[in-house]
């Protein structure tokens, strides 16, 4: 079985104002819908020093910034469902 995938959502001040909570709810709903509970976990993080127009998110080892809550669904299918760990 694949290892648990950790999705780290920045809950720092800037990202929080831009809707970390809303993004987290979206992703969580999608996790449930796709029956991925127990395989994908969501945790919060301090400011990732990448404050921008959207929210900073880390999926496994890959970091993204500028994600807006309304992009949640696209982001989920592309980066979380489609996550491939590339072992160097």
């Amino acid at each position: 079985m694949r290892q648990m995938l950790v999705v780290t959502i920045c809950v720092g001040s800037s990202c929080n104002l831009r809707g970390s909570d809303d993004l987290a709810i979206k992703i969580q709903n999608l996790i449930e819908k796709e029956n991925l509970e127990g395989m994908v976990d969501i945790v919060g993080a301090f400011c990732m020093d990448a404050c921008s127009r959207g929210i900073s998110v880390r999926v496994g080892k890959r970091q993204f910034s500028g994600i807006r809550p309304e992009d949640g669904e696209a982001f989920f299918y592309k980066e979380i469902m489609g996550y491939e760990e590339t072992i160097p």
């Binding site: 809950v11 909570d21 987290a24 709810i25 969580q28 945790v43 919060g44 993080a45």
Partner: peptide, 10 residues
């Protein structure tokens, strides 16, 4: 480990 006090909204 740095654990941020944040409970997922749900």
């Amino acid at each position: 480990e740095l654990q941020v006090d944040w409970i997922p909204p749900k």
